[in-house]
Write a protein that binds this DNA or RNA. Structure first.
Lengths: 205, 205
DNA sequence: GGTACTGGCGTAACTTTGTTACAGGTGTAA
DNA sequence: TTACACCTGTAACAAAGTTACGCCAGTACC
């Protein structure tokens, strides 16, 4: 196969090495020299292909959202609207636990002074759009109560993100039950609270 | 007043300077030299009083939880059990927005390679204990349904933390309504979902 | 075919930052 | 007065982000 661009291999090699370091050794070990050594090139390579460390982190950010979306989409395959939300909720946590540092690069400021570019943020909001679409489907099908899909989607995401972050930070109290069961029960609490059963309406002040 | 210890003034000056830098310029600007300059001493001072940068961050962490607790306790003054939860919920967000970087030092890994000491983590769990106590009071009073107070408290905390983190990361979709109203509505959703009304029971699998 | 240019790459340097070694200085106890 | 403990500052070292510079390969142009 012909080389598509100049040398995309080097770029992917660097990115792959960087993700490997982030996942294996944490964000603190993500140094340009470390990445260059792992990718088998000099530090200059990071600058030619990514413009610097920030550009590299940006690529890790975008790569994360792509894999993340794929994981959620795979979990949502062939399920009813509400079951899709449960399944993606579980897949969300699974992915985060499997890729803890990359998750934190995406959702917290794990690399100091890093600010995602506009393009990267746009990619991130694609993931949110997919989530909103799933929520909207559950509302349309009657599985969830009639409310603004975006607000409901934010509520679900915030809850899920909160659980995952507390777990990643190991901030559960030692007395608490196993995180997985707490999480699953939490999912049930959220969706039950959003059901169209004759429960209490949300009083929006 | 006599000097209690050797020279606690220097210690508090350094800590105050560090918190000022963190709040004003972000975690990336928290360098030992920066702190020393702001405190009017040399870098050695940070090492004599805090053992290094990690010790300093540890102190910022603990200081955060103390102020955080005070803010929540002030908000909870003289209210009924459920209203206390609403009020502390709002105070939680207010404090985080007013002290964004310190909040992230406490709840995310804003400083790379920083690991809170056992003592600091113990201080953090005091805050959670206070929260559990408030939740337990609301359960005892009948304002919330009968469930394990710790699990309910975790659920509330996760939700609140999730909302706040997404807001701090500016990850709300641009279409979404104002964060404050979304947040308040979210609080209502959580507590309504936990009410003892004849709503759906949580199915714990 | 020869020449100039473009782009990727490595070496080495510069700057910033965490950390430590070392020397001076101050107060207290014997 | 002397010895000791404890701060404190200066200066150095190592690691890390970044940049300057030169080399080399491939390509276009004459």
């Amino acid at each position: 196969m012909a080389t598509e661009k100049s040398t995309p291999d080097q770029r992917t090699a660097i990115l792959r090495a960087a993700i490997g370091i982030v996942q294996g050794e944490g964000a603190g070990a993500l140094t340009v020299r470390n990445v260059a050594a792992a990718a088998g090139c000099s530090t200059t390579g990071v600058y030619t292909y990514f413009g610097g460390k920030d550009g590299l982190v940006d690529a890790i950010f975008v790569d994360g959202f792509e894999k993340f979306d794929a994981a959620l989409a795979a979990a949502a395959d062939q399920l009813g609207p509400l079951d899709v939300l449960y399944a993606t909720g579980e897949a969300y946590r699974s992915w985060a636990l499997a890729n803890p540092t990359q998750y934190q690069v995406m959702f917290t400021r794990a690399v100091p002074d890093f600010l995602a570019t506009e393009a990267a943020l746009a990619r991130a909001s694609q993931s949110f759009d997919a989530h909103v679409a799933r929520v909207a489907r559950a509302i349309d099908s009657g599985d969830l109560a009639e409310h603004d899909a975006i607000e409901v989607a934010m509520h679900v995401w915030a809850t899920v993100h909160g659980y995952v972050m507390l777990e990643l930070m190991q901030m559960q109290p030692p007395i608490a039950p196993a995180p997985s069961s707490t999480y699953t029960a939490g999912l049930a609490r959220v969706f039950n609270g959003l059901r169209p059963i004759p429960s209490r309406e949300v009083s929006a002040p």
